[in-house]
């Protein structure tokens, strides 16, 4: 019971911080709020029994992505968001219609934490029963990540590598261009 209470409180905090992020105009404050948002969601993952995910989210969301956003802010030198000249009605309409459809979709969903939910019937029981025996690794998340879904993870690592190359291509070449200009 107590973890459902913590779950609900943390979720409400997340919603409040997200509203604050939208309403704040100072980009520095937005980034700091987003860092808090990530840290809270890491806590929430911990409550939801996903310690590996909580771990990653705490290091990535609250750490690295905040640093990267601050670096971008330092490069763009734009600390305040300008008020938009457009009316917000059309986006609001689109968002409310989408939200209504999504909420309608959740009515049929199995309740939160239901052990008989369809998501727990298919491959998960096999992982839980056989995983530790077949791979010799008690941490099932590592076992599934590296062994059962190794192909998938190879793809993910390649995506990370490709994104790194992309950033290098976009931002890595300035000094060379400057030197060329000096030669002329």
């Amino acid at each position: 019971m107590i973890d459902i209470l913590i779950d609900i409180i943390l979720l409400s905090f997340l919603a409040i911080i997200a509203i604050a992020i939208i309403r704040t105009r100072s980009l520095l404050a937005v980034i700091m709020l987003f860092s808090i948002f990530s840290l809270l969601s890491a806590g929430l993952f911990m409550v939801l029994d996903a310690s590996d995910v909580a771990f990653t989210e705490a290091a990535v969301g609250a750490g690295i992505s905040t640093v990267l956003m601050l670096a971008t802010l330092a490069l763009t030198k734009s600390y305040e968001e300008k008020p938009s000249s457009h009316r917000p009605w059309i986006p609001l309409l689109v968002v409310s219609v989408t939200a209504a459809f999504l909420v309608y979709g959740t009515i049929d969903m199995p309740p939160f934490g239901d052990p008989n939910a369809p998501a727990h019937q298919h491959v998960a029981p096999r992982y839980i029963e056989q995983g530790a025996k077949e791979t010799g690794v008690p941490n099932l998340v590592t076992a599934v990540l590296a062994s059962y879904r190794g192909f998938d993870t190879l793809g993910e690592v390649t995506v990370v590598f490709t994104a790194g190359i992309g950033v290098l291509l976009l931002l890595g070449g300035r000094q060379r261009r400057k030197k060329k200009k000096e030669k002329r």
Partner: peptide, 20 residues
């Protein structure tokens, strides 16, 4: 464990694409 695996990789891929 399956959603955990999917999201674990998605977080790291997410920060890489955010950087892009």
């Amino acid at each position: 464990p399956l959603p955990h695996v999917l999201i674990l990789t998605a977080i790291v891929v997410g920060v890489a694409t955010t950087a892009l």
